[in-house]
């Protein structure tokens, strides 16, 4: 593996890591904020009939299921189209087991 190919793989891996971090931040922000606002009602509202979407409580559907679907689609899309193919290099047979 040439040095430039190795550097390219490193750059591409860093790009993947940033993508994951930004998605994670968005998922964390949406899920916790929505659930905190709509999923944790005060005691006096607990007895009100719970609104449902497809059988799920509405706060679970919008706060958790919907972002879960979006994240799964993003994962699939990134796996199919977003992530670059890179040269991972050859196995270093000499390094092990003696190295250090």
């Amino acid at each position: 593996m040439t040095e430039s190919a190795s550097a390219k793989t490193l750059r591409s891996a860093r790009r993947d890591a940033w993508f994951v971090f930004l998605c994670w931040l968005a998922a964390l922000g949406w899920t916790l904020t929505y659930c905190a606002v709509y999923g944790y009602p005060p005691e006096d509202r607990l007895e009100h009939p719970v609104p449902t979407v497809l059988g799920f409580p509405q706060w679970v559907f919008i706060g958790i299921l919907l972002p879960w679907i979006v994240c799964s689609l993003l994962t699939i899309a990134y796996g199919l189209f977003g992530m670059q193919d890179n040269d991972l290099g050859q196995e270093n047979e000499e390094a092990s087991p003696h190295g250090y």
């Binding site: 591409s12 891996a13 993947d16 290099g89 270093n92 000499e94 390094a95």
Partner: peptide, 25 residues
């Protein structure tokens, strides 16, 4: 948070750890 696990467990460092492991054996 399992919604994020496919990305965090695989894309976060999959490519790079595989590359480093090959470099060092």
């Amino acid at each position: 948070s399992y919604m994020m696990v496919p990305l965090t467990a695989m894309a976060l460092m999959g490519k790079r750890i595989n590359q480093v492991a090959r470099m060092s054996g």
